[in-house]
Amino acid sequence: MRLTGPQKILWAAAGFAALAYGALMVFSDRAPVSVAQAAFRPTFTLPDAEGRLRTLSDFAGKHLLMFFGFTNCPDVCPTTLAEVAQVMDDLGEEAANVQPLFISIDPERDRRLGLAAFTAAFHPTILGLAGDAEQTRAAAESFKINFEREEDAAAPDGYMMSHSPALYLIGPDGDWLRQFTYGTPAADILADLQSRL
């Protein structure tokens, strides 16, 4: 395809706009959420291991500890889920007011490998959700998180997932409260939760 001069300019403008939008998305991720700002309420509609559709409103009144990951992940995901499990144990009775959710970004394979067995091995309270590609993408976009499939011949099934490794805290009315960056010690997460419960 040969482009005329004006067409080239248009394509260049479109490219620049895409880049600018990309930059905006990247920086908006990091923007601190101030109290003055309108509440950020992410949403999701995803089936649990039994196929029941779950949405944020199902958990109204509880704090949600949310993690996006995949069960074939040997390093980052177990470390974070182990911390969540520790936090749930340490919360004692207050654990009834906290619901940990694990959202699969590799849903097809995770359902095949067994999502419930995976989450239960860490803690019985962790609920795993795995939708179809579209539901998963929508949930991730709503939380402003990124994930990507990378082809890798040496990886199990020939691909690897990369994803945002943070843990997100959602309040009892559905407001996004904060994120805990990967590696935040369980004790710090616990202290933060206890100050809110």
């Binding site: 980052v76 470390t79 990124n146 994930f147 945002s164 990967y182």
Partner: peptide
């Protein structure tokens, strides 16, 4: 490695163990 908030796991062809130092293979 966590780059721009995304964790990925590239292959490490070689993990340096410099003279007089310790290197850890550890979570994260």
């Amino acid at each position: 490695v966590v780059t721009n908030g995304i964790a990925s796991m590239p292959h490490a062809m070689s993990i340096p163990v410099p003279a007089g130092q310790s290197v850890k293979l550890a979570p994260g």
